[in-house]
Nucleic acid binder design. Structure first.
Lengths: 153, 153
DNA sequence: GGACCTATTTATAATTG
DNA sequence: TCAATTATAAATAGGTC
């Protein structure tokens, strides 16, 4: 008969989990937890949410709602200049510029499966840059534990 | 003496909250909840996380860790082609190409405060596009409630 | 790695001030 | 609006298989 060990959860302290195995397990559980919460936010409040999670030195996990193709005209109804993600512009000059852009950034625009890790990292970096831009545009962008309570700042 | 009403939380059902006021309140609370969970994931497991939340027809809220500038060389140590977010390339030809790129996409590269809503929406769209690319590259990208249990798919 | 278990902590819906 | 309270649902640490 083996010794009965205590099961229930322990209180969590906000610090890096040193044990590699525990850290990996917690990563999986909590990543799913964040995605689930995000999904609830999407369904219950009608918000749109995008999340990227990069575990240390590994492939990214992501959550996104809704899909770009499904909602491309939901918010953007006016004619618009070319962007990395909207190649469908009618004006020929713009099309040509877009094509040059494509040639310059082929690795970036191509299927990510063909990227190497460095390129994928740069993609991630670009994403973080966009995040920052949106962050500066939006409100209540940060979150921190400073005064004994979690505060949006 | 007023009638004592029940306080504690009710079980939540995964559906859009119809009452506008309740929806707004839930949005704020749950947005903070997601950011808090994300922050815990970052601190406890060393992952990098970026989140964007777009409430219907409003300014975006975001969470990001770490800051791009703080960690620009953490993952990308090799020399690399120009990207939207990495202007510091030594090769002059690449620099020139980058500059052309800037001119073509001025509205996109400029401060987001100066963008109109359409442009900001395109920025968001581009971000969703990047999310999709990363999604296709990564694993366990989706999340859904189908069989009575939450499953990563 | 995953699925399940259980004790407990944590998040939060509804209400009050 | 916005913070605090409270009852309760939900998340999860640590364990087993």
């Amino acid at each position: 008969m083996s010794t009965r060990l205590i099961k229930g959860r322990k209180s969590v302290c906000l610090a890096k989990i040193e044990n590699k195995n525990n850290r990996q397990v917690s990563f999986s559980k909590r990543r799913n937890g964040v995605f689930k919460k995000a999904n609830e936010l999407v369904v219950m409040t009608g918000a749109e949410v995008g999340i990227i999670v990069f575990p240390l030195g590994n492939k990214p996990y992501s959550f996104g709602h809704p899909n770009v193709n499904e909602t491309i005209d939901k918010y953007v109804c006016e004619e618009r200049p070319p962007s990395l993600s909207s190649p469908g512009i009618d004006d020929n000059k713009l099309k040509e510029k877009n094509k040059n852009l494509e040639n310059q950034q082929e690795w970036f625009r191509g299927p990510i499966e063909k990227m190497n890790y460095t390129e994928a990292s740069i993609l991630k970096e670009g994403l973080e840059d966009l995040l920052l831009k949106v962050k500066n545009y939006g409100t209540e962008c940060g979150y921190g534990y400073e005064t004994g309570k979690w505060k949006a700042k």
